[in-house]
C-alpha cells in the first residue's frame, strides 16, 4: 500500500518537479518487486508462468493489466516502466474471454464518475486529468454513456431547434427527423474511439524514438476523450436557442474547456519530443475537437434565417448585445 500513496503524491508533483518524478520512477521497481515477492505472488507463481507465453503476444505494454509473472519480467527487464505498470500488479487479472475481464472496465463508483465529470468541466491549469482523476483505473462507463447521452442530446435538440425556428410559419409542417440519431451516433462514437486509437498509435511510435516520462494506455486516452465530451451535452441542449451569436459563444466556451483538458493531458506525453512535433500533435488534437463541435453545430442545427422570422428588426440588436 505504501507504493500507492507514493504514486498519488508523485502524480500531484509530476508537473511541477520533473526531475524528482523521474528519480521516483527509478526507485519504484525494487520496492514493488519486494512487495510482490513477499506477499501476493508466491502462491500463484507457477500457474502464472505457465500462462505467460500464451498471453504474451496479445499483451500490450501500455494497458493496465497483465499477470504477475509478466509484471515481474518487465520490471526486471527495463527499469523505466511507468506507474501504470506498477499499479497493474495490484489488480486481479483474468483472460479476455471471461466476463470478469470486462468488469474491470466498469469498476467505478458513483462518486468517482461525478469527480471525473467535475474534473473535465473545471480544468485546473497545469494539472493532468489522467493523473488527478483517473489514476490507473480507466473506466468505460463514463465514455460510453456520455457518448450515448450526447448522441440523443444532439439529435433531440437539433429537432427541437428546427421546430422552433419554423414555428411561426403557416406552411411549415413538423416532421421528426429520426435519421439524425443514427448519423449523430456514427459521428460521436467514431470520434470517441478512432481518434484515441490513432493518437495511441502515434504516441507509441513516438515513444519508441524519444523516451517520454509520461505515457498513456489506450484505455486512458479513450477515458479522457469520453469525459472531455461531457461539456457538449449541456452545450447541445442550449443550442436550441435560435440565435447565431449565442450558439457561437457556447461553442467557444465548450471548446475552451474541453480543448484545454485534452491539451493539458497530452502535453506531458509529448513534451520531451521534438518541439515542432509536440506542438503539431497538440494542434491536431485541438483541431479535430474544433471540427467535431463546429461540424455538429453546422450539420444538426439549421441556421436561423433572419428573413423568415417576424423578429427581423430586433435580431441584430440582440446579437450585438450578447456579443458584448
Amino acid at each position: 500500500m505504501a507504493a500507492v500513496d507514493d504514486l498519488q503524491f508523485e502524480g500531484a508533483e509530476m508537473d511541477t518537479n520533473n526531475s524528482c518524478g523521474a528519480e521516483r520512477v527509478d526507485s519504484h521497481p525494487m520496492r514493488e518487486f519486494g512487495d510482490a515477492a513477499t506477499s501476493a505472488a508466491n502462491p500463484g507463481t507457477t500457474t502464472i508462468h505457465i500462462e505467460g507465453p500464451s498471453e504474451s503476444p496479445t499483451h500490450q505494454p501500455g494497458l493496465p493489466r497483465g499477470s504477475g509473472g509478466e509484471e515481474d519480467d518487465e520490471l526486471l527487464g527495463n527499469d523505466d516502466s511507468d506507474k501504470t505498470e506498477l499499479l497493474a500488479g495490484q489488480k486481479k487479472s483474468s483472460p479476455f474471454w471471461t466476463f470478469e475481464y470486462y468488469q474491470t472496465f466498469f469498476d467505478v463508483d458513483t462518486y468517482q464518475v461525478f469527480d471525473r465529470i467535475k474534473g473535465s468541466l473545471l480544468p485546473i491549469p497545469g494539472k493532468n486529468f489522467v493523473r488527478l482523476y483517473i489514476r490507473s483505473n480507466p473506466d468505460l462507463y463514463g465514455p460510453f454513456w456520455i457518448c450515448a447521452t450526447l448522441v440523443f442530446a444532439i439529435a433531440i435538440s437539433g429537432n427541437l431547434s428546427n421546430f422552433l425556428i419554423h414555428l411561426g410559419e403557416k406552411t411549415y409542417h413538423y416532421v421528426p427527423e429520426f435519421r439524425k440519431v443514427s448519423i449523430a451516433a456514427t459521428i460521436i462514437y467514431a470520434y470517441a474511439w478512432l481518434v484515441p486509437l490513432a493518437l495511441w498509435g502515434f504516441l507509441m511510435w513516438r515513444n519508441s524514438k524519444v523516451m517520454n516520462i509520461v505515457s498513456y494506455s489506450f484505455l486512458e486516452i479513450v477515458c479522457v476523450y469520453g469525459y472531455s465530451l461531457f461539456i457538449y451535452i449541456p452545450t447541445a441542449v442550449l443550442w436550441i436557442i435560435p440565435q447565431k451569436a449565442v450558439r457561437w459563444i457556447l461553442v467557444m466556451i465548450a471548446l475552451g474547456i474541453s480543448g484545454s483538458v485534452l491539451a493539458m493531458t497530452f502535453w506531458p506525453a509529448v513534451r520531451e519530443d521534438n518541439r515542432r512535433i509536440a506542438l503539431a500533435t497538440i494542434g491536431m488534437i485541438v483541431l479535430l475537437h474544433t471540427l467535431l463541435s463546429v461540424g455538429c453545430l453546422a450539420y444538426f442545427f439549421d441556421a436561423p434565417e433572419m428573413d423568415h422570422l417576424p423578429t427581423t428588426t430586433v435580431a441584430p440588436n440582440q446579437t450585438v448585445g450578447t456579443a458584448k
Partner: peptide, 12 residues
C-alpha cells in the same frame, strides 16, 4: 454505491 450509475441508462 453504484445505484445511480445503473439507473441512469434506464432513464435515458
Amino acid at each position: 454505491n453504484r445505484k445511480a450509475l445503473a439507473i441512469y441508462p434506464v432513464f435515458l
